[in-house]
Simulated assay, not measured.
Amino acid sequence: MPSYSRRDVLRSAGGAVGAAACGAGCDRGGSPPSSSGPRSPGAAPAASRTASKAAPAGALAGPRRFPGQPQQIEHGPRAGRAVALTFHGQGDPAIATAVLREAEAAGARVTVLAVGTWLEEHPEMARRILDGGHELGNHTMRHRAVCALPADEAYAEIRACADRLHRLTGHIGTWFRPSQARTATPLVARLARRAGYPHVLSYDVDSHDFEDPGPAAVRDGVLDRVRGGSVVSLHFGHAGTRAALPGILDGLHRRGLRPVTTTELMSG
């Protein structure tokens, strides 16, 4: 698997800078970025056009509309055997990289909903995720309680992370998930659509790994509830999640369940 230095990613993306983020279901911290105003997601600035030429093919696969599906998606088709493992993207990049390697060794592809400030501090992770065949999406810029914010502040959180993704990869990312909330309010769902995301990605299986209950509890918490079509919520940045992942992947395999990206799950 190729690795990219911070300098490599900054050169290909046209530049990026640095900080980190949390609340219910994630980790804390972060410093305010400069706010970004509305812009059409289809209009790429010159730096982003340069990034898209150098980016892997997966980077250019942006949000898709799935006719017949609700705007807020909690799970995929139940008749199939596919499941989506989704990771909230923040925390120690060494743990994140170890999680990605473990998934790849098992032939699994995951969906990462990244916090914008995490991408500012570790821009090389955007390329690492996409080069592994995984999906990269939007989990707001600073991981504030987005559903409790006024409309303009909530939109700024969504848009700023979308802009960060666009500068790094050439697109705004594949999915949006609200920060500090399992589901989006109607207002936040509308703001996400305005920012270019036709659907909000929720989940039906919560691993509670952010509570650090231990690898066995994380593994059993997933395997006890997962079924065909499930979307599982997990987190980078927790050593227990990394330790639990081999058991989760093995348990899915034994049940004939196949971990895929969320887009592949919804396309099945």
Score class of each variant (00 low, 15 high):
V231Y: 06
R193D: 12
R219Q: 15
G247N: 03
L201M: 14
P186G: 14
L201C: 13
Y203F: 15
D209W: 10
H208Y: 13
Y197P: 09
G221D: 02
D206M: 01
A244T: 07
L223P: 09
G221T: 01
A192C: 07
V205P: 12
P198T: 09
P186T: 11
A181C: 08
V232G: 00
G228S: 06
D212Y: 07
G214W: 12
S179Q: 07
T185Q: 08
V226R: 01
I172A: 00
L191W: 11
Q180R: 08
P198V: 12
D212M: 09
F236W: 15
L191A: 10
F210V: 08
Y203K: 04
A189L: 11
P198K: 04
R227K: 12
V188Q: 02
G240Q: 14
V222A: 00
G247H: 02
P246Q: 10
Y197C: 06
W175T: 03
D206C: 05
A195K: 05
V222D: 00
F236Q: 14
G229K: 06
V188H: 05
H199P: 08
S233C: 14
D206S: 02
A239M: 02
R182L: 10
L187G: 10
D220W: 11
P178R: 04
G240C: 09
L245Q: 12
G170H: 12
R193G: 13
F236D: 14
G214A: 09
R182E: 09
G173T: 05
R194D: 03
P186S: 11
H235N: 10
P246N: 08
A243N: 05
T183H: 08
S233D: 09
S179R: 03
S202Q: 07
L201H: 01
D206T: 04
A181R: 07
L223R: 10
W175F: 12
A239H: 04
Y203L: 10
Y197L: 05
P246A: 12
R227E: 15
G240A: 11
V232A: 07
A239E: 14
V226G: 01
D212L: 10
P198F: 09
Q180L: 08
F236I: 07
